[in-house]
């Protein structure tokens, strides 16, 4: 089978060339992407060393770094950080799992969709933050109330995209499942779920961003722990350096969350042709 093995080599070769080129493209992207942050950092340093701005409103970058070190070594920054992360992860996982399960059920059964959709649509239009006061009354100021609110926020985009993904499964694959005598469970496991995965992954990445943004607000509004609490407390005490530490940290964590979702997406969807996020 000469033609076949030759084709195999061609595929291997093409893949190699492509990855070399994309590596070069990646490093260039990296360089271009770091220009603007460096400019901003430099202007910030300049503005504070020339005292253009009152340090109470904008402390120097070096002051912020010192504040970061103080918070890390003498205060409970790590603890607050872990509290926030814990809430986000739990809220995200519960919301996403419920959304995928119910989304598949609603996708497969029009009846079930009709059953839940009026209720869901009403709940969906009340923002997570608007739920928080009531839920805090029920569950108290601790983590459970925030986890619940984040689950709610994660749930709806994922639910709707899962439903849409299931509805979008190609009729031809359903026909194939009949030819192969698949059971309903096998149909879901082997065809419906994988076919809906691209749509689900998009919503998971989006929802992860929402969840992280929301935890900061929720912690600011209730409770005495977490990055959100720290940032609002810093504002109240005019600890601008600590406030900036929290802001940078929140931004970095958000960036890391989005990158890891992107990497997970690439890995899970590696079967897709020409897929590049």
């Amino acid at each position: 089978m000469d033609t076949v093995s030759q084709k195999g080599r061609q595929i291997g070769l093409a893949g190699g060339v492509e990855s070399v080129e994309s590596a070069r493209g990646l490093s260039l992207t990296w360089v271009i992407g770091t220009i603007l942050p460096l400019v901003i950092l430099a202007s910030w340093q300049l503005a504070s060393s020339r005292e253009w701005v009152d340090p109470v409103f904008l402390p120097a970058p070096s002051t912020v770094v010192t504040a970061f070190w103080t918070m890390l070594t003498q205060q409970d920054l790590i603890l607050d950080f872990l509290v926030s992360i814990n809430i986000v992860i739990q809220g995200f996982v519960y919301g996403a799992v419920a959304a995928v399960v119910l989304g598949i059920a609603a996708g497969l059964s029009k009846r079930f969709e009709q059953f839940v959709s009026p209720t869901f649509n009403t709940i969906r239009h009340i923002p997570g933050i608007a739920w928080l006061p009531l839920i805090v009354l029920w569950l108290g100021l601790g983590a459970p109330a925030k986890i619940l609110v984040i689950s709610k926020t994660v749930f709806f985009p994922v639910f709707l995209n899962t439903l849409q993904g299931v509805r979008g499964v190609d009729e031809k694959y359903i026909e194939l499942s009949r030819v192969l005598k698949m059971s309903r469970f096998q149909l879901i496991r082997k065809i419906v779920l994988p076919a809906a995965t691209p749509s689900i992954m998009v919503s998971l990445r989006y929802a992860a961003g929402l969840a992280w943004a929301l935890v900061v607000v929720a912690e600011g509004l209730s409770g005495l722990q977490g990055l959100g609490f720290l940032i609002f407390r810093a504002q109240g005490l005019l600890l601008t350096d600590q406030l900036l530490v929290c802001m940078v940290l929140i931004g970095l964590v958000g960036f890391v969350i989005d990158r890891s979702m992107y990497v997970a997406e690439r890995r899970i969807l590696r079967w897709r042709q020409g897929f590049d996020g």
């Binding site: 031809k172 694959y173 194939l176 082997k190 994988p194 076919a195 995965t197 079967w271 897709r272 042709q273």
Partner: peptide, 10 residues
Amino acid sequence: FQDHRLLPWL
């Protein structure tokens, strides 16, 4: 079938 209908995710 005329289209190969291989599942793209397998």
